[in-house]
């Protein structure tokens, strides 16, 4: 299996990008896929807070940190790397990856590149798609509608949406369903991965006393997200297969 990089990003803040990265990290861990993560919210990362064991905080503009990510893709035992970009820096991260030759290596088949582009409910998110398009010709590109904080995507009229979609080739869609606010908040307070919360464990693995109802909501929510990942054939993509038609 060739190394795979999964970039989770958005050019707009507050769209739940790190939530998607956390759900992804949980999903892969649950599938026994050894995964490492890079949190570009330097110096203090949110992803690092929830998935401290697997996450390094990096500055994507720093050459040494770029080397820590890219130069270790081939040598690291862990073949799947999640990069959670900091708010508003998707385009900048993509440019940085282009400048270091990462996309050339993807085109040559050295690496698998999957991009989860988390969209907000406003038309500005659609503009991001156009900006992102030049970087994703060899990526498995997925637009993520994140409803976890009850976004309704009310500003998207179908005609505009289709117009933007037609600009990107091979863009798939992924929907992150809403999670009960109270359940989400309790996981935040617990500071543990979603799966640890469901297992009634604290972040450091000790027995917790989380509400069963809230754990149940999180478990159901995770199940729906897993269905979404399975729908796009994420594990196959990571393994190097062609995308589902």
């Amino acid at each position: 299996m060739k190394p795979a990089v999964i970039l989770v990003g958005a050019d707009k803040g507050g769209v739940g990008k790190t939530t998607v990265a956390r759900a992804l990290a949980d999903y892969l861990t649950g599938k026994n896929i050894m995964t490492r993560a890079f949190d570009t919210e330097s110096p203090r990362g949110t992803l690092k807070r929830f998935h401290g064991d697997m996450t390094e905080v990096v500055d994507i503009d720093s050459t040494s940190d770029q080397m820590r990510i890219i130069d270790t893709l081939n040598t690291a035992q862990v073949k799947v790397s999640i990069i959670d970009t900091r708010a508003g820096s998707l385009a900048r991260t993509l440019r940085a990856l282009r400048d270091v030759g990462f996309f050339d290596a993807v085109r040559e088949g050295q690496f698998t590149f999957i991009l989860f582009h988390v969209l907000g409910p406003s038309i500005a998110s659609l503009d991001e798609i156009a900006e992102t398009a030049p970087f994703v010709s060899n990526a498995h590109y997925f637009l993520v509608k994140n409803h976890v904080n009850d976004s309704t995507f009310f500003e998207w009229d179908p005609a505009t949406y289709q117009n933007y979609f037609s600009k990107t080739r091979s863009a798939g869609e992924l929907t992150i369903p809403k999670l009960s606010e109270m359940a989400y908040e309790q996981v935040e307070i617990a500071g543990s991965p979603f799966s640890q919360f469901v297992a009634n464990k604290t972040g450091d693995g000790r027995q917790a006393a989380h509400s069963f109802v809230l754990r149940g909501y999180v478990r159901t929510w995770q199940g729906k997200i897993a269905e979404e990942f399975e729908e796009i054939g994420l594990l196959d993509l990571i393994a190097g297969a062609s995308p589902k038609k």
């Binding site: 009960s180 606010e181 109270m182 069963f212 109802v213 809230l214």
Partner: peptide, 13 residues
């Protein structure tokens, strides 16, 4: 409401 569900189902279990 989730608060009500927590108050009830957690106790039922």
């Amino acid at each position: 409401k989730v608060e009500g569900q927590v108050a009830m189902f957690d106790r039922l279990l």
